[in-house]
C-alpha cells in the first residue's frame, strides 16, 4: 500500500468517525422526528401494533387531509401567524435598540431585570393578566396573546442583541463619529447593518418560542382565537388518543418553523464583520 493510499484511507476513516459521532449525538432528536413521521403516515391499527411497525405497507395520507379538513385548521394557522408575527416584530422594534443601549451603557443591571421577567413562571401572572384582559374587553381578540407573548420574545431579542452588540467593535462607531455621523446615524447606518446576523438569530429564536408556546394560549384563547399548539392539544382531548392524526398535526405545526430556520440560516453569515478590524 502506497503512502498516498494510506493517507487517503486514514482521512476517510476519520471522516467516517466524525460522521458516526455526529449521528450518535443527534440520534435521539432524529429518532423522535422519524417516529413522528412514521406515526403520521400509519393507519391507527398499525400504530398500536406490537412489535412496532416503522415503515407501513399502507400509507395513511388521510391523517394529513384530516388535519386540514377539520378543526378550523386554517383559522388557527392564521391566528398563530398573527400572534407570533406581531409579537416578534414588536420585540425586534423594542429589543434591538434596547440591546444596543444596554450593551453600550454597560447597563448589566437592567439586563438582569429583563432576565428575571423571563424567568418568572407564566402561570404566576396568567390569572391576573386574564382578569385584566377581561376587564379591558380584549378576550375575544388576539391582542391578549400578542401582548403576553412579548414576555417571551422581548427578553430573547434583548439578550441575543446585547451579546451581539458587545462584540461589534467600538472603533467603527468612533470612526463614524469622526466622519460626521450623529448617534442615530451611527446606529442606523453602521451598527445595525453589521448586527444583521444577530437580528436574524434573535428573530428565529423569538419565532420558535412564540410559535410553540402552549400555556398562554390554553388560558387566554377562546374558540376562535386558538393558536396551533392549542388546536393540536384539543385534537388529543376530544376523541380517543388517535396517534396518527395527532402526529400529522404536530408535524404540520412544526413545518413553518423548520422552513423559516432553514431559509434564515443563510442570513447568518459568520464573519460578516471580518475585515472591519484586524482579527475582528
Amino acid at each position: 500500500m502506497s503512502a498516498a493510499t494510506r493517507r487517503r484511507m486514514m482521512r476517510f476513516a476519520s471522516q467516517l468517525g466524525t460522521l458516526f459521532c455526529a449521528a450518535l449525538l443527534v440520534s435521539p432528536a432524529l429518532f423522535f422526528f422519524l417516529w413522528m413521521i412514521s406515526l403520521s403516515l400509519k393507519l391507527e391499527i398499525d400504530n398500536g401494533a406490537y412489535p412496532p411497525i416503522f415503515i407501513p405497507t399502507h400509507i395513511a395520507w388521510k391523517n394529513y387531509s384530516g388535519v386540514f379538513a377539520s378543526n378550523n385548521f386554517f383559522l388557527y394557522f392564521w391566528n398563530s401567524i398573527v400572534v407570533t408575527g406581531t409579537a416578534t416584530l414588536l420585540a425586534l422594534i423594542v429589543g434591538v435598540p434596547a440591546g444596543y443601549g444596554i450593551a453600550r451603557m454597560k447597563a448589566s443591571k437592567s439586563a438582569i431585570v429583563i432576565m428575571i421577567a423571563r424567568m418568572t413562571p407564566g402561570l404566576s401572572y396568567l390569572i391576573p393578566m386574564f382578569l385584566i384582559f377581561q376587564w379591558l374587553g380584549l378576550l375575544g381578540t388576539l391582542a391578549p396573546q400578542i401582548i403576553i407573548h412579548l414576555v417571551v420574545t422581548v427578553p430573547i431579542v434583548i439578550w441575543v442583541m446585547i451579546g451581539y452588540f458587545e462584540t461589534t467593535p467600538l472603533e467603527l462607531e468612533e470612526a463614524a463619529m469622526i466622519d460626521g455621523a450623529n448617534r442615530w446615524q451611527i446606529f442606523s447606518q453602521v451598527t445595525l447593518p453589521i448586527a444583521r446576523p444577530g437580528i436574524v438569530v434573535s428573530l428565529i429564536l423569538s419565532v420558535i418560542f412564540s410559535w410553540n408556546n402552549f400555556i398562554f394560549g390554553v388560558v387566554l384563547a377562546g374558540r376562535d382565537t386558538r393558536t396551533l399548539p392549542v388546536a393540536v392539544y384539543n385534537m388529543l382531548s376530544f376523541e380517543q388518543v388517535s396517534w396518527g392524526p395527532l402526529a400529522a398535526a404536530a408535524l404540520v405545526v412544526t413545518f413553518p418553523v423548520l422552513v423559516l430556520t432553514i431559509v434564515a440560516q443563510r442570513q447568518i453569515v459568520a464573519g460578516l464583520t471580518a475585515g472591519a478590524v484586524k482579527g475582528g
Binding site: E171, E174, A175, M177, I178, I194, G275, G280
Partner: peptide
C-alpha cells in the same frame, strides 16, 4: 466641540473600515 465639527480625520490602529 463634537468630533464632527473639529475638521479632523483619523486613521485607527485596526483600520475601522465599515465591513458592510
Amino acid at each position: 466641540l463634537p468630533p464632527k465639527d473639529r475638521d479632523i480625520a483619523m486613521v485607527f490602529q485596526n483600520y475601522a473600515l465599515y465591513p458592510h
